[in-house]
Amino acid sequence: MTPGSGDGTNAGQSPSAEPETPAAPVSRSDELRAQIAASEPERTVRCSIPSRLEMLTAVDQLTQSILQHIDCDDDSAAAIATSVIEAGTNAIQHGHRTRSEAPVDFTFHLGEHVIDIWVEDRGPGFDLDEALAIDPTSPAGLLDSHGRGIFIMRAMMDQVDFEIRDGEGVVVHLRKRYRPHTAS
């Protein structure tokens, strides 16, 4: 990544940093994720998979285990698991395409009745405005076999953010609050 490029900020860099040894820019998603992982490592789970759709089965099993561990209610659990799969699908199919060796990284942070998930690829990025303009529930969109991934994530999660790093990868941040299963 070119220093100072993309959507991220340069938080953490001193204004007097030597230009010949620039630190990699730190995006807001990266910064938040790093802060959380550093401050609460006992609440952070990570995994990395190669870009193959069948590997999403392992990610789903991990997600199910985490959701069971945090006692997540059934409705939220279904929404979270589905959204994680959608983010992974996008990373593999649209981020890496034929680069099956490129890793997709998943980071889960287990908060107090809230879960944050980051899904990161190394792909070229995409036009977010164009993707958001798609309405798969319109009469024409209903019978289109493409274009539902982001819509599904946004419909099912409380918050969905995209960090598109100008040709150097995409980080999707998903957040959802949940009720304890035992209270539902």
Binding site: L53, L56, D60, A81, T82, I85, E86, T89, Q93, L143, D144, S145, H146, G147, R148, G149, I152
Partner: peptide
């Protein structure tokens, strides 16, 4: 079937058509 993603939905739609 344990889960379906958006690509799987696309497959169902194209099969429907």
């Amino acid at each position: 079937v344990s889960w379906v993603n958006s690509t799987g939905l696309g497959l169902l739609i194209s099969s429907h058509l």
